[in-house]
C-alpha cells in the first residue's frame, strides 16, 4: 500500500490537487500581503471571503454568468476592504479585534443571506476546467499545471504581477514606505491613509476572488462556513512567506500539497489515523518555517500600528 504512494499516477494526482487547492489560499494570501506590507494586519479575510463567496454564488445562480459572479465577488470584497480600512485606518481601531469582528459578521451574514435567498443548497455551473492548448498535452506537467479552471491560472499569474507591483513600481515603493516608516513617508508627502485604503481595497478584492474561487469554480456551491478556516490559514501563510509573493506562493503550495498527500494516504488505505494525516499540513508548515526562518526576517515595522500624525 505504501508503495502505491510512490507511483507516477499518485504523484501527478498530489501535484494536481495541490495546485488546485492552493488557488483560494493564494488569492487571499497575496491580498493580505499587500495590506500587511502597508502596515495593516487584516484578520477579517475569512469573513470577506465568505460574503464574497456568497455574492459570487447568488449572481451566478441568477444570471448563469460566472464572470458577472466574479465581478460581484470582487466588488463585495472591495467594499468590505474599504470598510475594514475605515475601521482600522480612519478610526484607528485595533486591527486584530476588528478582523475578528469582520470574520464573525461575514460568517453569520453570508449564511443568513443564503438561507433567506436560496434556502436549500444548489450546485451551479461555474468556471469549468479549461485545458490550455498544446501545453496541456505535455506529459505529466500538462495535467498538473494546464488543465484547470481559469481562476487557478489567474492565481499563479497574480504572483509575478504582485511581485512587480510591490518591488518595481512607485506605487509599491509607497506601500513599503508607509509600512516601514509612516512618519517619514508622511513627511515626503505620501498619504499614509490613502495608501492603506488602497492596499486594503486590493486585499479585499483578492479575498473576494478567493471566496469566488470556492463558490463558483472549485465547489460550485455555497454553504454555511464554506471557507472553513481558509482565510485564517492564508493570513498565517503570509507570515510564512515573509511578505514576499514568491515565498507566499511556496507556502500555499506546500500547505496544499501536503493536504493533497494526506488525502491520498487515506484513499490508498495506508493505516495512519485520519486525524494524524489531517494534522500534517499544519505541522509541516510550522516545521518548514523553523528551518526557513533562521535568517532573520523583519516584519513591516509599522504592522498593526495605526498611524498618528506627529503632534
Amino acid at each position: 500500500m505504501i508503495s502505491d504512494l510512490f507511483s507516477l499516477n499518485v504523484l501527478i494526482g498530489i501535484l494536481t490537487s495541490g495546485v488546485r487547492l492552493a488557488t483560494s489560499y493564494l488569492y487571499a494570501a497575496i491580498g493580505e500581503t499587500f495590506g500587511q506590507i502597508s502596515g495593516v494586519l487584516n484578520l477579517g479575510v475569512e469573513g470577506i471571503m465568505l460574503v464574497s463567496a456568497y455574492a459570487g454564488y447568488i449572481v451566478v445562480l441568477k444570471t448563469e454568468d460566472p464572470w458577472l459572479g466574479l465581478l460581484a465577488a470582487i466588488l463585495v470584497g472591495m467594499v468590505m476592504g474599504v470598510a475594514t480600512a475605515f475601521i482600522s485606518v480612519t478610526l484607528k481601531a485595533d486591527q486584530g479585534i476588528s478582523g475578528i469582528g469582520v470574520y464573525l459578521f461575514g460568517l453569520g451574514f453570508s449564511d443568513l443571506l443564503f438561507r433567506v435567498t436560496v434556502k436549500s443548497p444548489q450546485i451551479l455551473k461555474g468556471f469549468g476546467d479549461v485545458a490550455i492548448p498544446v501545453l496541456s498535452d505535455l506529459p505529466v506537467i500538462g495535467h498538473i499545471f494546464f488543465n484547470h479552471n481559469i481562476l487557478v491560472y489567474g492565481a499563479f499569474l497574480l504572483v509575478p504581477v504582485a511581485w512587480f507591483v510591490l518591488n518595481r513600481t512607485t506605487f509599491g515603493l509607497k506601500i513599503r514606505a508607509v509600512g516601514q516608516n509612516p512618519e517619514a513617508a508622511d513627511s515626503l508627502g505620501i498619504s499614509v491613509a490613502r495608501m492603506r485604503y488602497a492596499t486594503l481595497m486590493i486585499g479585499g478584492g483578492l479575498s473576494g476572488v478567493a471566496g469566488a474561487s470556492l463558490s463558483i469554480a472549485l465547489l460550485n456551491m455555497f454553504q454555511q462556513n464554506i471557507t472553513a478556516g481558509q482565510g485564517f490559514i492564508a493570513v498565517a501563510l503570509v507570515y510564512f512567506g515573509a511578505w514576499k509573493p514568491y515565498r507566499v506562493m511556496l507556502g500555499c503550495l506546500l500547505f496544499s500539497m501536503v493536504n493533497a498527500l494526506q488525502l491520498w494516504i487515506q484513499t490508498l488505505g495506508i493505516p495512519i489515523p485520519s486525524d494524524i494525516a489531517l494534522m500534517m499540513p499544519y505541522v509541516l508548515t510550522i516545521v518548514a518555517l523553523v528551518f526557513a526562518a533562521r535568517s532573520v526576517v523583519t516584519q513591516p515595522a509599522a504592522l498593526t500600528k495605526p498611524f498618528e500624525r506627529g503632534e
Binding site: Y239, T285, I286, L289, V290, A293, V296
Partner: peptide, 10 residues
C-alpha cells in the same frame, strides 16, 4: 523566529 500569528493559527 517563527511568527506567533502563524504558529498560533496552526
Amino acid at each position: 523566529n517563527v511568527n506567533e500569528v502563524l504558529s498560533t493559527i496552526m
